[in-house]
Design a protein around this nucleic acid. Structure first.
Length: 500
DNA sequence: ATGTCC
């Protein structure tokens, strides 16, 4: 269901970060994707952030997705389009936070045994650590990611050389939304010189060491999850699933992570630098919100941001592919002879250069997933030219996650859908109100194992919106169709703060 | 999201 949101009597809000009085007439409506039940989940600050984003300089389109909630400047769960400006805040602190899905040839009954699943959890955790500050442990072929290889990875992304050195199958690069990112001038040289400068500037902050965190999950909402694939009964789902490489009734592995401390350092450095310049040069902040600082394309500031975003994006890309290679290796250790292939790797925190309404623009997806349907010009030459690419949407362990494919209607949302269920309880609120034993026994009832002794309360299914209602919003709006559901069998998350 | 303020 789509509606347009155009407030005539906007609220005044104070967030501590921003105080904004909105103009009484917004310049153009914000497209809102959501059923009535979903629209009730948007709180005032979330709507306010969407309006702030819409009225910010150079912005031509804003879409609010059903999973939207408060973010940094712009809501998490929105799309913001500009042909003339880049906005670091609405890309976010975790540059190129993404989803990836690895399809294995293991039938579901092979992992029915809890001991096998426990062994898989141990084998995966041994290779791909979770938690803040935790770096990579080991890589295939016994090679470690040293600083030199880390630098090559963030400059080149998933190049043939980087993949070869890390034991990443070379054909996986074809299964990426973008397997590498280049600098503001479309060259790698720009990234190399920017990295030199950053390394020199930030040598006191262990900046270079963060590159060795390739192959790790981190914390928060990041996770690895073992799934059983359930392909939809209809002919289209079966046919699209075949193109995607999905295998009904077999095991798959879904991962959610981003650019770790490396991307965080780049993003927060940009926020700080731009906020200082706005202040020094007395430039008005969009809606008075310093989280919405921007840089006009062509400026030195925009060039630096685009270079930093590309470096962070390359980290996230190699990070995901390495994790998938390590997970495959773990499966092979526990279940000898296992084979697997990447289904897709797709981001939900990135700005991409795309054509919107015939205008080349930067499409900022902040907690939003690209959704190009079959026949889209940008998919020509990819395995998904005729079907549209896989859309990977994490839901929750109880209700499952989803693989979708875009429909023609996706054009109305700037070729974007949601990025998951979306938070409905804040972390503090979830920790205060949810009951630990209820969360753990619910997972136990579904026979879902975890590396956590106690599942983090602020990550419990109840802390998120109703995933089926979120998906219904996307389907009813004609944006995308469900191809398969992924049912969790075990979850790997950062357990270090679970008992807060 | 993040060695959760270098």
């Amino acid at each position: 269901m789509t509606t347009t949101h155009a407030r005539t009597t906007p609220p005044m809000i104070s967030t501590g970060e921003a105080t904004a009085i909105l103009p009484t007439e917004t310049t153009a409506p914000i497209k809102v994707i959501g059923t009535e039940a979903i629209r009730e989940t948007f709180d005032d600050l979330c709507i306010q952030q969407a309006i702030n984003s819409r009225t910010a300089p150079g912005v031509t389109d804003v879409v609010l997705n059903p999973d939207a909630h408060c973010g940094y400047g712009a809501p998490v769960g929105c799309v913001m389009v500009s042909p003339s400006h880049v906005y670091p805040g609405p890309v976010g602190v975790d540059i190129k936070c993404s989803m990836s899905l690895l399809q294995l040839d293991v039938p579901a009954d092979v992992i029915e045994d809890r001991k096998t699943r426990r062994a898989l959890i141990a084998a995966i955790c041994k290779r791909t650590p979770t938690g803040a500050g935790k770096g990579q442990r080991s890589v295939p072929n016994g090679r470690r990611v040293n600083r030199t290889l880390g630098m090559q990875a963030v400059i080149e992304g998933a190049s043939e050389s980087v993949c070869e050195q890390l034991g990443i199958p070379s054909n996986w690069a074809d299964r990426c939304e973008d397997s590498f990112h280049v600098g503001h001038d479309d060259t790698r040289d720009a990234l190399a010189s920017r990295l030199d400068w950053l390394t020199d500037q930030r040598h006191m902050t262990n900046f270079s060491d963060k590159m060795t965190q390739l192959g790790s999950y981190g914390g928060g909402n990041h996770f690895g999850e073992c799934e059983v694939v359930e392909i939809g009964d209809d002919d289209r789902s079966k046919s699209v699933a075949e193109t995607f490489g999905l295998r009904d009734g077999k095991v798959a592995f879904l991962s959610h992570c981003g650019s770790r401390g490396f991307g965080h350092n780049l993003a927060s450095g940009q926020f700080k630098a731009l906020q200082e310049k706005f202040s020094r040069w007395n430039i008005p902040l969009p809606a008075g919100d310093r989280q919405l600082v921007y840089a006009p394309l062509g400026s030195e500031e925009a060039n630096h941001y685009l270079d930093d975003m590309a470096l962070g994006a390359n980290f996230a890309t190699v990070n995901h592919l390495l994790i998938n290679a390590l997970v495959l290796e773990a499966f092979q250790e526990v279940i000898p002879g296992t084979t697997g292939d990447l289904v897709y790797f797709i981001s939900h925190n990135i700005a991409r250069k795309e054509i919107v309404n015939n205008v080349p623009s930067w499409v900022h997806r902040k907690g939003a997933t690209r959704a190009f349907p079959g026949g889209h010009h940008a998919l020509v030459g990819t395995p998904f030219a005729h079907t549209g690419h896989p859309i990977l949407l994490p839901g929750n362990p109880r209700d499952g996650s989803a693989v979708m494919v875009a429909d023609e209607g996706a054009e109305q949302s700037c070729f974007s859908v949601n990025h998951g269920a979306g938070r409905v309880l804040g972390r503090k609120q979830a920790k205060r109100t949810l009951d630990q034993s209820t969360i753990d026994s619910e997972l136990e009832d579904h026979d879902i194992l975890s590396n956590c002794r106690f599942y983090p309360k602020d990550e419990a299914p109840a802390a998120y919106k109703d995933f089926n209602e979120v998906l219904a919003s996307v389907k009813k709006a004609g944006l995308a169709s469900e191809v398969a559901r992924l049912k969790a069998r075990f979850v790997i998350k950062d357990a270090s703060k679970a008992d807060d």
